[in-house]
Write a protein that binds this DNA or RNA. Structure first.
Length: 642
RNA sequence: GCCCAUAUAGCUCAGAUGGUAGAGCGCAUCCUUGGUAAGGAUGAGGUCAACGGUUCAAUUCCGUUUAUGGGCUCCA
């Protein structure tokens, strides 16, 4: 038997016999403490569990508790334990389908006669705890596919059989712990006792392999951690997220509402929400003016012929509402603004000297969304995109993308988002446009991202059929991701609408068209903003900036005076002159998250000042009314990044 | 669209083996004039989501519809 050399990424190395397992090697090379933290290793890019024998010289990278990979392995193993528990409890009444780890947890899909109820969780969790306590090892075996198919077929596990058939491999790997064996690539924990903290969270229907033509399975979601504290922290974050839910806060703060009589997915903006939206729109228009855009307004409906020309009736019909007849001509609601902007483009003959043309519009569109997809402000049927279209020459493309990214990040930063994930999506299988077009534009997007110093992930084949795109997912204060910004190059519409410009060579050329939305839609963006700030909006776009409250009726007149003065100064001010105690008024304003409370008693009345109370409970000593107005105005400018 | 759950006062929620309902907050009126997170009293608010069925009787049981929530799928 020959020996092999094993080294690990902390510098230790040893020569050991062939077929030494990873775990044995680690026992040799690591301190007890380190070993107990090591969940698995990577060797030459492959993740191996501790039971894997090593047959050649190997360099091991440790996957230790605390890393994302370690959590993935833990959760995957916990999914297996849950499947074992479910099988133990329900026996042949359930079939197992598939159970991976996902962001923040894991799930396992089951086919069963009776859907699971949250009450069943206790039973399953108790069984899981039993399995964990037994410290059952996860053991891996390789089996030829035919044998594996027979094995699962005998058990009646037709989903596993289908998976193995589709894999089309000669051999597959199986993992067993206790009474449960699963088709699985691994890796897994050494044994079940490594699972220190887990919780089953909810049950939901899910199609087998995500295809709605397939059977509906029962999916149980759960999560797991290496210690109870981390689990508790995670559950707290979920609680916090619940408190920040924009649907809840939207109701409490009276920002928006939806009603059965009006229809699902249609938003009614209440006065405070409408004001919030107006402030955001004003900022947006201003930022676009500063960045050399021009503002457009376009109608909400157009002749059906327009949507034939644009191709929307061919490839977007299922998202469009049925038409209406006006004077015997068919019209349809717009699902997009682009054809209208193109109409304006085509209203004149264009020269390269006008380029780049940057046109923006807060364009309200209507799209059919499946009933089950609707969600608060985040997914609605009528919404306003912060849309813009840029028309330019191929040479200008990279610079225009750079400018868009610049404006995009500026706007996101102004609203308190400075963490994001960026994706560059390339040509899909079904697409229009020449190879040259695709290559040049994809390259331009890439160069612009690099020039801006932004790291991004490539999303191969995920572009839209008409061109490559950049998507930006912003991260909120709880670390959750939201897709808002999108920047897309379009080779399709310029062709369909026969757009052209006269170049310096006095010949006609087709312009490059860029679609982009930075906030995505005002509805979604405001929904995300509500959750990001938990309703505690920065002064510059808080719908109410200050509320005046008197201590007794004796100051009512002076309060009215202050109120009018500040209102005229442009401060978004309210007054609370009710016959209530100060405590009561403060509590109410605090719960409504009003940034400044102006408290007025005899003292202030006599000196012609106001006492300012902040949302954090602190006071600013008396200040004059003018000083307060200046302070608010200054803070707003600062907030808007001007 | 599909699976599961839910729908009671403006809001948050109780409620009865089937006999037309209650609390707190909010709202109105009155007392109270109180300096930094809820002073007190009285009162007005409900076709118990809609429609149909079973029943002497349905808010309660059954069915359908609508909406909402958790997911699948899709997306700004």
């Amino acid at each position: 038997m020959t020996d092999i050399k094993i080294d690990i990424d902390n510098g230790e190395s040893a020569v050991m016999p062939t077929a030494t397992t990873v775990g044995e090697a680690l026992s040799e090379l690591l301190s007890n403490k380190q070993r107990k933290r090591t969940v698995a290793v990577t060797v030459a890019g492959e993740t191996l569990d501790l039971g894997t024998p090593l047959n050649t010289d190997s360099s091991l990278s440790l996957i230790q508790i605390g890393s994302d990979e370690s959590l993935e392995i833990l959760r995957h193993s916990t999914a297996h334990v849950m499947a074992e528990a479910v099988r133990e409890i329900y026996g042949k009444d359930v079939k197992v389908a598939i159970g991976p780890s996902i962001e923040n947890g894991f799930y396992y899909d089951f086919e069963c006669k009776e859907p699971f109820k949250p009450e069943d969780f206790e039973k399953i969790e108790a069984k899981m705890t039993e399995i964990v306590r037994k410290a059952l090892p996860f053991t891996r075996t390789e089996m030829c596919s035919d044998d594996a198919i027979k094995h699962f077929d005998d058990l009646g596990e037709n989903y596993k059989v289908e998976l193995i058939r589709d894999l089309g491999e000669d051999t597959v790997s199986l993992y067993q712990q206790g009474s449960f064996t699963d088709l699985c690539r691994g890796p897994h924990l050494p044994n079940t006792s490594w699972i220190k903290a887990f919780k089953l969270q909810r049950v939901a229907g899910a199609y087998w392999r995500g295809d709605e033509k397939n059977a509906m399975l029962q999916r149980i979601y759960g999560t797991a951690f290496f210690d109870k504290k981390a689990l508790r922290k995670h559950l707290n974050t979920l609680e916090e997220a619940k408190k920040r839910d924009h649907r809840k806060l939207g109701k409490e703060l009276q920002l928006f509402t939806m009603q059965d009589e009006i229809g699902p997915g249609l938003i009614l903006w209440q006065p405070k929400g409408a004001l919030l939206r107006k402030l955001i729109e004003d900022y947006w228009k201003d930022a676009h003016y500063r960045n050399d855009y021009e503002l457009l307004y376009t109608p909400h409906i157009a002749r059906q012929d327009l949507w034939k020309t644009s191709g929307h009736l061919d490839f977007y019909a299922e998202n469009m509402y049925s038409g209406m007849d006006i004077d015997d001509v068919r019209y349809q609601l717009k699902p997009m603004n682009c054809p209208f902007h193109i109409g304006i483009y085509n209203s004149n003959k264009r020269s390269y000297r006008e380029f780049p043309i940057r046109w923006c519009e807060l364009g309200t569109v209507y799209r059919y969304e499946r009933a089950g997809a609707l969600h608060g402000l985040l997914r609605v049927r009528g919404f306003t995109q912060d849309d813009a279209h840029i028309f330019c020459t191929p040479e200008q493309l990279e610079n225009e993308i750079f400018n868009i990214l610049d404006l995009n990040l500026e706007i996101l930063k102004t609203f308190g988002f400075d963490q994001y994930d960026i994706y560059l999506s390339t040509r899909p299988e079904k697409s229009v446009g020449t190879d040259e077009n695709w290559e040049q534009s994809t390259e331009a997007l890439k160069l612009a991202l690099e020039k801006k110093g932004l790291s991004f992930e490539l999303d191969p084949g995920e572009g839209v059929f008409y061109g490559p795109k950049i998507d930006i997912k912003i991260k909120d204060q709880l670390g959750r991701s939201w897709q808002c910004s999108t920047i897309q190059v379009d080779f399709n519409l310029p062709e369909r609408f026969k757009m052209s410009y006269t170049g310096s060579d006095n010949k006609e050329h087709q312009p490059i068209m860029i679609h982009r939305a930075l906030m995505g839609s005002l509805e979604r963006f405001i929904g995300v903003l509500i959750e990001h700030y938990a309703g505690v909006f920065p002064l510059w776009f808080a719908p109410v900036q200050a509320r005046i409250m008197n201590i007794t009726d004796a100051q009512a007149e002076y309060c009215e005076e202050v109120y009018m003065k500040l209102r005229k100064a442009g401060i978004r001010i309210e007054k609370d002159l009710r016959n209530e105690k100060l405590n009561y008024k403060i509590r109410e304003a605090q719960m409504e998250k009003v940034p400044y409370m102006l408290i007025i008693g005899d003292k202030e009345k006599d000196s012609g000042t106001v006492t300012v109370r902040l949302r954090n409970g602190k006071n600013i000593a008396d200040m004059s009314i003018d000083d307060f107005a200046t302070k608010v105005a200054d803070e707003c400018l600062e907030g808007r990044g001007i």
